[in-house]
């Protein structure tokens, strides 16, 4: 099995719901607390396993705002695991999930240096490295109804832009999405072979600019301009 996520950049609205649900689930989960330092102060800082960044792609007027949620890509060639001196970082052979054993981590930061995706953050209070677990304490929980055995970020996403599944199975939903929508890996040139895949936005027709003629048209144009501002 090769478990991971597909993120649809066409439908993500950047609401940060996935990051909040992730923090809520994982702060009381298998990797211990996800601490914050000075959470209500002037300069809050804390460990999050999911970050959403917003980009402008293309040049105006043909530009598009793209929200890009990023968590651990559970890379097939995970350098964070090979550089770890203590054996705290490991990749599970059965499903490819990359995890940190909190009892072994010495907080040397080397795995965060080796990760090109910024997926690992040092817990400011615990002094150990925290990262996405793909909600390993949720997806195998047989006490949960079967349709809830998914990562918290996937369940909470209001636009269904996150899909969880097995990339090794060619007929899984994630494999189909990657095939049909030409899914992309981020920074493939570094050779980490990330499992998580991003679906590029669909091409939509560019808004048509209507032509104005005559005095009446020009006045209408000015009025429109004034109202629009």
């Amino acid at each position: 099995m090769k478990l991971g996520l597909v993120v649809d950049l066409d439908t993500c609205v950047g609401c940060h719901g996935c990051a909040t649900a992730c923090k809520q689930w994982n702060t009381s989960g298998t990797i211990g607390p996800l601490s914050d330092k000075d959470p209500y102060g002037k300069d809050p800082n804390g460990a999050w396993l999911n970050r959403i960044r917003t980009y402008e792609v293309g040049d105006t007027p043909n530009s598009k705002t793209v929200h890009m949620p990023m968590s651990c890509m559970h890379c097939e060639d995970a350098a964070c695991v090979t550089v770890c001196p203590t054996g705290a970082s490991y990749k599970r052979s059965e499903d490819g999930i990359v995890l940190v054993d909190q009892d072994k981590c010495m907080g040397c930061n080397l795995c965060a240096w080796a990760c090109p995706y910024g997926a690992r953050e040092l817990d400011p209070n615990e002094g150990t490295m925290k990262k996405c677990t793909l909600c390993v304490d949720r997806i195998y929980d047989e006490k949960l109804p079967e349709d809830e055995r998914k990562p918290a970020c996937v369940l909470t996403c209001p636009t269904k832009s996150r899909t969880f599944g097995d990339f090794d199975d060619p007929n899984s939903e994630v494999s189909k999405l990657v095939r049909e929508r030409a899914g992309k890996q981020l920074m493939p040139e570094l050779g980490y072979n990330p499992v998580n895949t991003y679906l590029p936005p669909r091409n939509k027709p560019v808004a048509v600019k209507y032509e104005t003629t005559g005095i009446a048209g020009k006045v209408k144009g000015w009025v429109n301009k004034v109202i629009a501002r």
Partner: peptide, 23 residues
């Protein structure tokens, strides 16, 4: 290459958090 949009210019609009984090 980082964001996967190789055919257009890409600019950061918002990093998603108001104060600096670990990264």
């Amino acid at each position: 290459t980082a964001t996967g949009f190789t055919q257009a210019s890409v600019r950061l609009l918002d990093q998603g958090h108001s104060s600096n984090g670990f990264l």
